[in-house]
């Protein structure tokens, strides 16, 4: 892969988000009822979308790891979980700030907010588990199982506003939203998708480097596992 591609992706993402923030703060029209505070949507909603996308990638990698035992899949699972937690924490924080002027409170134990909080705690636990287990193979298997269990919460987050009476609004449709608002939301979502790809890609390289270091420390890995790790190509 060309060396300039990853930094260029990060640069494009930041440039898109700069334009996106300008569009959101000064170009997009204010909401009929929420007025200007609705402008928080342009960073809150894409952040949560990216968090859900990242943990979905983590789920896919975790399932595949259990079948293929590839260290690259394990590294990608680690990277996507951490990036998912970053975007999830940002999304929940911004939603909480938006809640204060619109609902009157920063936090309430509403189904959508509660399930989002459960997701954050679950994936923070997943990352903590990865830190505590030293044996790479055991760590990869255990964290894959935890990731699959944690993912059960994700569809519940998405449908929580439809299944239960929620203070949080139901997903909007582009048909009922001002086209200018839809454009700004999509622009920011595209910019954040580029940034999320840059983050996962960068974090994946770090995770892969860590696996290679572990391979170089024979005492950290049981002899039976070493051959399997080398065969799966982590040292390449």
């Amino acid at each position: 892969m060309r060396n300039w591609l990853r930094p260029a992706l990060g640069g494009v993402a930041f440039a898109m988000l700069l334009v996106g923030s300008w569009l959101a703060l000064s170009w997009a029209p204010p909401d009929r009822e929420m007025g200007d505070v609705q402008r928080i949507m342009y960073v809150h909603v894409p952040s949560v979308w990216m968090a859900l996308l990242a943990v979905t990638l983590n789920f896919a990698c975790s399932v595949l790891y259990l079948f293929k035992n590839s260290w690259k899949l394990d590294a990608l699972a680690e990277a996507s979980a951490e990036v998912g937690v970053v975007f999830g924490a940002v999304g929940v924080t911004l939603g909480s700030i938006w809640g204060r002027p619109t609902w009157g409170v920063y936090w309430t134990w509403d189904p959508r907010l509660t399930t989002a909080a459960i997701m954050l705690v679950s994936y923070a636990g997943y990352l903590a588990l990865r830190r505590f287990v030293e044996d790479p193979e055991r760590r990869a298997v255990w964290s894959a199982v935890v990731a699959i269990i944690a993912y059960v919460d994700v569809p519940i987050i998405w449908y929580s506003v439809k299944w239960w009476k929620s203070l949080h609004q139901v997903q909007s449709s582009p048909k009922t939203v001002d086209p200018d608002m839809v454009f700004v939301l999509r622009w920011n979502a595209l910019g954040l998708l580029a940034l999320m790809t840059f983050f996962i890609w960068s974090r994946y390289r770090i995770a892969l480097r860590d696996r290679e270091r572990e391979l170089a420390l024979p005492e950290a890995v049981a002899p039976a596992n070493t051959a399997q790790m080398q065969a799966s190509g982590a040292a390449r």
């Binding site: 703060l25 007025g35 200007d36 505070v37 402008r39 960073v43 924490a89 911004l94 700030i97 938006w98």
Partner: peptide
Amino acid sequence: GAGRIEGGWEYIWASYAIFWSAM
């Protein structure tokens, strides 16, 4: 409802500051 939230820019600036700082 005819009510509309007025102002609230301090919440907007705080949100964008947190977003950019985190990224």
